[in-house]
Design a protein around this nucleic acid. Structure first.
Length: 629
RNA sequence: GCCUCGGUAGCUCAGCCUGGCAGAGCGGCUGCCUCGUAAGCAGCAGGCCGCGGGAUCAAAGCCCGCCCGGGGCUCCA
């Protein structure tokens, strides 16, 4: 007997169709039970009455802990592959029901033998979700009990429960080393990341450094007037985010993806969608409109799959690549999990799907995108030293594709973490993700790509092959950079690390809100300085002027605290000689002499290939409001 | 969701334990200073002490509930 026990806020279920001849009579209407412990129950071959009684007694003990006295017995065959005969199962279920009632538990029961659909809302506390199995063994009942967080719905997810991960380090030559045998010397971050993945180890109790930074630099801030994890972005933050969005989008279009736009909300009861939804253990934002239940998307999958389902294409157009910058994707993360820019409830995620004919094509594409992602991260300002990669695959996939896996390891050029499963239980066969390790030794995934072998069928996506046959493609899911907000988080955390080393923190030049700050030494020079500013702005350089009446030293200090890459003081000497004194942050704040044209050429060369947006604030600092502090 | 810490001026925070006039620094405004590479000087304004309830002659402070944030538990497709 297998029982999945879920302490729920509510469950709504509806019998849809009789499955078997002995199915009970039931009305095809919705039933709703509030504040209830739902018992998804599968009766297995060999189960007996004693076991049924034992199971209810165990549940009863739990109810007292949970301070609830209401259960719903929900026959749920998918929990086991060793089911008993239906007649026996029904008998035992009825016994459980009777026993529960006898113990004074308010007992409800979903009908046996029906296909049912349900929606339920699980409580978040650690005891809310439990699975138990009872095995008949030499006349006595053995209870195996596990406390495990998981969504109840899919058999595949249940498998996660029993399926074990085998951890290895994949060397750059493609060899797999069991993790306990790997020498982590010189691979500090990989070690931290591995520990984070495997043990979920937490050490520090400290505010993540990027949070005060995102506020002080007027990038983003919490918005108490919204839901947690929905942030406000100040002009400078909006600029940074917008540039990242533009850059990633341009890279994906350059790669050959077709940019599309799809709705942010979907029908909760759409057949393909609800199925996929149940496969995805994230919590959704739900909303009601007229008579519809809607959910907010957590990725672009829905929209793109529905679009491709309706599209006609053949092997000649493949791999077929669609891209969308989802602003926003929503995930109703548990309140304790939302954190600064690391983990949000509303976030901007570039999402690119490639529809491939077969595994060979998928692998080829996967490799192309692997290179592309590394390049995208690098251009954003995150080098291979800043993140660690995990590759996750099944044992059989590895056996069949050793060379391919080795190629990936070679491309990356650093040992990476390999998670190996004996069998597949997610919808993908191969996945990689790049993970930033932050100042709290926490890891956050950035880029990722997966080979999805399930969803084409689920969404009835087909292409036509050479012989005119309709086939389901393989689907690659890729986020080239990961969430844009998370990129900002990584850049800020990285800058903080730099600062801890005693160096000057900064953002990449192309993302710096002010690239060049001009400081007229006194009022009389402001007009001349504006001429210089105009020349620079004309060359697509974000320049501003600190015309405030504060002392020179104070204005320099504030420019430094804003991480302005180039600070130039302009007075009589500069105007007469035409030579500027440029305080170069990258060169540790050293003041360098150069002509305006030289500076503009230097800056322009560093900005090559990056998108540009004009300054999102008034040219004169005296005209700017203060958003924070 | 649970545990835990916090929320006082725009920001950072002291005051709370032991109830009795609401505080500091930064920022803002005004004035002086017009400056040569990381904090010039002075004055003024600025408060629903997170929100709601309770006990008290009296609450920022004590008690209860809620909201928001940090950290932890749990989890991350």
């Amino acid at each position: 007997m297998r029982i999945l026990q879920l302490h729920s806020n509510y469950i709504v279920y509806k019998p849809v169709k009789k499955e078997i001849s002995i199915a009970e009579e039931a009305a095809k209407e919705e039933n709703r039970v509030e504040e209830v412990v739902v018992l998804f129950t599968a009766i297995e071959a060999g189960d007996n009455s004693a076991m049924a009684k034992q199971a209810i007694d165990d549940v009863h003990a739990f109810l007292q802990n949970l301070k609830v006295n209401r259960i719903l017995l929900y026959p749920f065959a998918h929990l086991s592959s060793n089911l008993s005969k239906p007649s026996e199962a029904l008998k035992l279920i009825k016994e459980m029901e009777a026993h529960a009632k006898q113990k004074g538990i308010e007992t409800y029961r979903a009908p046996f033998g029906w296909t049912k659909q349900f929606t339920l809302s699980i409580k978040g506390h650690p005891l809310a979700e439990q699975s138990r199995s009872y095995v008949a063994e030499a006349g006595k009942t053995k209870v195996q009990q596990e406390v495990k967080e998981e969504e109840p719905v899919s058999a595949a997810l249940k498998a996660e429960d029993t399926l074990k991960s085998y951890w290895h380090i994949l060397e750059t030559d493609g060899s797999l080393v069991p993790i306990e045998e790997f020498n982590f010397k010189g691979h500090t971050n990989l070690k931290k990341f591995s520990q984070y993945e495997i043990k979920k180890a937490r050490a520090v109790t400290q505010m993540p450094p990027h949070v005060p930074l995102m506020k002080r630099l007027e990038i983003a801030d919490y918005e108490p007037g919204s839901d947690p994890g929905n942030l406000r972005w100040y002009p400078k933050g909006r600029l940074i985010k917008s540039l990242l969005e533009q850059f990633v989008t341009a890279e994906m279009i350059g790669y050959g993806a077709m940019e599309v736009e799809t709705p942010v909300m979907y029908d909760f009861n759409h057949p393909s969608l609800s199925d996929y939804l149940n496969r995805f253990p994230a919590r959704q934002y739900l909303l009601q409109s007229e008579d519809k239940d809607l959910f907010l998307r957590f990725a672009a999958c829905f929209g793109q799959f529905l679009m491709v389902h309706d599209a006609q294409f053949s092997y000649k157009q493949m791999p077929l690549k669609l891209y969308e910058l989802t602003r926003y994707s929503f995930r109703r993360e548990k309140s304790g999990e939302v954190c600064g820019l690391r983990r949000l409830r509303a976030f901007t995620m570039p999402d690119c799907h490639a529809f491939c004919t077969d595994l060979e094509q998928a692998k080829q594409e996967f490799k192309t995108r692997f290179n592309l992602c590394i390049s995208v991260l690098g251009n954003i300002g995150l080098s291979k030293d800043d993140y660690e990669i995990a590759l996750r695959f099944t044992k059989d996939f590895y056996e069949e594709n050793k060379e391919f896996i080795a190629e990936l390891a070679e491309i990356y050029g650093k040992p990476l973490l390999a998670e190996v499963w004996k069998e597949r239980f997610f919808y993908f066969r191969l996945k990689w993700d790049a993970n930033f390790v932050d100042n709290q030794d926490k890891a956050a995934a950035l880029s990722t790509d997966q080979i999805d072998v399930e969803n084409a069928k689920r969404y009835d996506i087909t292409y036509v092959n050479e012989k005119g046959e309709k086939l389901n493609p393989l689907i690659l899911h890729c986020s080239p950079s990961g969430a844009i907000e998370r990129c900002v988080y990584a850049l800020l955390e990285k800058a903080y690390k730099t600062q801890q080393k005693g160096e000057l923190p900064m953002l990449p030049l192309w993302l710096s809100p002010t690239q060049v700050r001009l400081i007229p030494i006194s009022d009389g020079f402001t007009e001349k300085v504006e001429e210089i500013a105009k020349k620079m702005a004309a060359k697509c350089i974000r320049v501003d002027i600190d015309d405030r009446s504060a002392t020179l030293q104070k204005r320099i200090r504030e420019a430094e605290m804003e991480w302005v890459p180039y600070v130039i003081v302009v007075g009589q000497r500069e105007l007469e000689s035409g030579v500027l004194s440029v305080r170069d942050r990258e060169a540790h704040g050293k003041v360098q002499k150069m002509k305006l044209d030289e500076l503009m050429a230097t800056v322009a060369s560093k900005l090559e290939g990056k998108p540009f947006k004009t300054l999102p604030l008034p040219l004169y600092l005296s005209k700017r409001p203060q958003f924070y502090g």
